[in-house]
Every structure is written in C-alpha cells, then in structure tokens.
C-alpha cells in the first residue's frame, strides 16, 4: 500500500517503512541506542531526501527512546544527574556542529565529511567493542567470572580534578571528561544526523566506568532530550520534518523497541556489547565501501532553492 509523504514529496510503501521502523526499533531497544545511524541511511536508500530523513528520524528516535527510557526508569536504571551533566555540554556541541553542518553544505563537501566521519567513528568504536566483547567471551568460556567493574583499576581519567559523585551509577569522577563526552556527542550528532547513543554507551563504559546497569537508561534519557529538541528545531527552522513519515516510523519503532528491550535483558551484557560492536563495525565498513568504490554515477544533483 502506497502512501504519499507530503514533505518528502514522494509516495512510499507504508509496510516497508513500518518494517524498517520495527527493525531499527528492536535494535535500538536491545542496545539502548537511538538507531539513527541505521535509520537515516535506510531512508536515504529508499529515496527520501537526506535533509528530510535526518529531520524526521529525530522524532522517531525521540519516540523509541522515550518508550525505552520509561522501561529503564521503572527499573530505576537511569542516572538523571549524569544525563543532565552530559546534556549541558551536549548543547554547546550541537550548536558547534550545526554551524559546521551549514558551512560544509554550502561547500558541497557535507556528504564527504559525513561519509568519512561514519567510517572513522563506526569502525573505531565497533573495533574497540568487538575486541572487548571477544575478550569477555573468552573469559566466560574459561569459566572465569566476567569482570564488569574493576574497582581498583583507575585510568588517567580518574586523576582529573573537579570530581563529582553520581550516586545512581556509584561512580566518583571528574566533571571534565563528562563534559567532554557530552560535547563530542552533541557535535557528532549534529554533523552526522544521529543521536550518538552507540558512541555514548561505550564512552561511558570505557572512560567513566559507568556500570552497565545504568548506562543504557542514562543514554536513552540523553537521546530523548536531544532528539526531541532536534525535532522542534528542524521543524521551526528548516520545515523538513515529515509528520506522516515520522508517525509510521514511530509506530514501528516503539513496538520494535519493546521487544528489543526484553531481548536485551535476556542477554549477558558482554555478549550484547559484542553484537553491538559487530553491527557498528559493519555499518562503518559499508560507508567505507561507498567512499572507495567508484559510484554508479559521478554526477549528482542538489536543490539549492525552490526558485
């Protein structure tokens, strides 16, 4: 069944889009990520203009992270203080990112920068997670206990000043790396059109040693706030949010996320991280392939203005 998208200006198959929402929602609920890094390329692939995709995906991510966040909230697995600290720096990062986004778009190099950032970030983060996940898997095979938290092991991050205590996560860290991570997430999110959950989760685990119990719920709260405000900002400034597309994605997304959260809870955290690592790495390789292999058409069009 075809349905016409008023802002994207083209008809799409409603079941295809609903299915995409379900699939990405499932992954997002399972790993506690927004799933923008999967959904945005998928929408562009079925012909929706990139700008409309980025803007509409924001609202879809807001919906699925809200339903996920509610589940984690009930389990008391959300560290609000940590989320707010990350958010305060994230806003600055987003503003910087939006400024660079506009500049690069005018120079016709936005696609390249998005492509290269996807490759570098996804392969690096994915590789790290696979490495960590495999080691944990090996330890489990040998019958050793999975060492989730090593209370004694402090890295250089813990030597920084301005220390703060985050009670829910049971960590005592400097505010500087928290702000740094928040800034990076906001910046990268604006440039790449993603919530940044897949980056945030490993960064919180590896740099701040946030326990797995609270990391996903906290990341979801942050994703929810950034994506909800991104929706409003995109709608108010660029008029690019397609409400019809958004609703179809949301309905699929929230249902998928529910099942994803359940599946995620049945799995060991190490295995979950390994799987997410593989997924992130695969998407990174996909983008690398696109940059290196000669495109079907060397030429492309971009609408500068509707006049």
């Amino acid at each position: 069944m075809q349905v016409y998208l008023p802002i994207a200006d083209l008809p799409v198959n409603i079941f295809l889009v609903l299915g995409m929402g379900l699939a990405v929602g499932f992954i997002s609920g399972m790993f506690g990520i927004g799933g923008g890094f999967l959904m945005t390329p998928l929408l562009i692939f079925i012909g929706i203009p990139p700008a409309v995709s980025v803007a509409s995906v924001a609202s879809h991510i807001a919906a699925s992270s809200f339903t996920g966040a509610l589940n984690y909230w009930r389990r008391r697995a959300v560290d609000v203080a940590l989320a707010l600290m990350l958010l305060s720096a994230g806003i600055v990062g987003t503003a910087t990112g939006v400024w660079l986004f506009t500049l690069l778009r005018a120079l016709d190099q936005l696609d390249l920068v998005i492509g290269v950032s996807y490759v570098v970030l996804l392969t690096a983060v994915g590789g790290l997670m696979i490495n960590e996940g495999l080691r944990a898997e090996l330890r489990a095979r040998r019958g050793q206990p999975a060492t989730l938290r090593r209370p004694g092991s402090h890295n250089w991050v813990h030597g920084l000043p301005l220390k703060m205590r985050f009670k829910r996560s049971k960590i005592y860290v400097s505010a500087i790396p928290v702000w740094g991570i928040g800034f990076i997430i906001g910046f990268v999110g604006a440039i790449m059109g993603i919530g940044g959950g897949f980056l945030l989760v490993p960064m919180l685990i590896y740099f701040l040693r946030v326990p797995t119990a609270t990391v996903i719920g906290t990341s979801m709260i942050l994703t929810l706030i950034t994506m909800a405000s991104a929706t409003v900002m995109h709608a108010a400034t660029n008029h690019l949010v397609d409400a019809i597309l958004a609703v179809i994605l949301m309905v699929g997304g929230v249902i998928g996320a529910q099942f994803g959260v359940r599946t995620g809870h049945k799995m060991r955290p190490e295995r979950l991280r390994l799987l997410l690592g593989l997924l992130v790495f695969a998407v990174g390789i996909r983008f690398a392939y696109e940059l290196v292999v000669p495109p079907d058409d060397l030429y492309s069009l971009r609408v500068v203005s509707p006049k």
Binding site: A62, S64, T67, V232, A235, V241, M250, V254
Partner: peptide
C-alpha cells in the same frame, strides 16, 4: 495540504506537535 501548510506557516507549533506525538506514541507503547 494541511501538513504542508502547518509545517510552513507554524513551524514551531508543528515541531512541538510532532514531538508531543512522539512522546505520546512512546508512552502508549510502554
């Protein structure tokens, strides 16, 4: 027509409405 007109003429309201819709759908599913 309604969607296009509201997105163009009342961008902020449209954005807030889309966001509320996202939250409502998220809450309903939960």
């Amino acid at each position: 027509q309604y969607v296009v007109e509201s997105s163009q003429d009342h961008g902020l309201l449209y954005g807030l409405a889309t966001m509320s819709m996202a939250l409502a759908i998220g809450w309903l599913a939960s």
